[in-house]
Measured scan of single mutants.
Amino acid sequence: RKWEEIAERLREEFNINPEEAREAVEKAGGNEEEARRIVKKRL
């Protein structure tokens, strides 16, 4: 699934746990840019 690939990239890029990465992607509706913004806000 594409969402899992996005979550994996976010996890590696921001050094967050898989659960946090998945939550961000879900919140963003699968949009990678939006997920990235969500993760950055949390850091």
Rank of each mutant, 00 (worst) to 15 (best):
R1H: 14
K2P: 12
W3A: 08
W3M: 10
W3G: 05
W3R: 09
E4S: 05
E4D: 14
E4C: 04
E5H: 04
E5I: 05
E5N: 05
E5T: 05
E5S: 04
E5W: 03
E5F: 02
E5G: 04
E5C: 05
E5M: 04
I6E: 03
I6N: 01
I6V: 09
I6Q: 04
I6H: 02
I6Y: 03
A7N: 02
A7P: 01
A7S: 08
E8R: 13
E8S: 12
E8V: 11
E8F: 05
L10I: 12
L10V: 05
L10E: 00
R11M: 13
R11A: 15
R11W: 12
R11I: 15
R11D: 03
E12F: 09
E12I: 11
E12M: 11
E12Y: 10
E12Q: 12
E13T: 03
E13A: 05
E13N: 03
F14M: 07
F14A: 03
F14D: 02
F14C: 03
F14S: 03
N15W: 08
N15Y: 08
N15P: 11
N15R: 06
N15L: 09
N15M: 10
I16H: 01
I16V: 10
I16Y: 02
I16W: 01
I16G: 02
I16D: 01
N17K: 10
N17F: 09
N17E: 15
N17D: 14
N17S: 15
N17T: 15
P18Y: 15
P18I: 15
P18R: 10
E19H: 10
E19L: 09
E20W: 14
E20T: 10
E20S: 08
E20A: 09
E20G: 05
E20L: 15
A21Y: 02
A21Q: 00
A21I: 06
R22M: 15
R22Y: 14
R22E: 09
R22K: 12
R22P: 01
E23D: 14
E23M: 11
E23N: 11
E23W: 09
E23Y: 07
E23K: 12
A24E: 02
A24C: 05
A24R: 01
V25P: 00
V25G: 01
V25L: 10
V25F: 03
E26W: 05
E26G: 07
E26K: 13
E26F: 06
E26H: 12
K27Q: 13
A28Y: 01
G29A: 13
G30F: 05
G30N: 03
G30Y: 05
G30A: 03
G30I: 02
G30V: 02
E32W: 14
E32Q: 06
E32Y: 14
E32K: 04
E33P: 07
E33I: 10
E33V: 11
E34F: 05
E34G: 07
E34Q: 10
A35G: 02
A35M: 01
A35Y: 00
A35S: 05
A35K: 00
A35W: 00
R36H: 05
R36S: 04
R36E: 05
R37I: 12
R37E: 14
R37C: 08
R37S: 11
I38A: 09
I38W: 02
I38F: 02
I38P: 00
V39E: 02
V39A: 06
V39P: 01
K40T: 11
K40D: 14
K41F: 03
R42Y: 11
R42G: 12
R42D: 10
R42M: 15
R42E: 12
R42W: 10
L43H: 09
L43I: 13
L43Y: 07
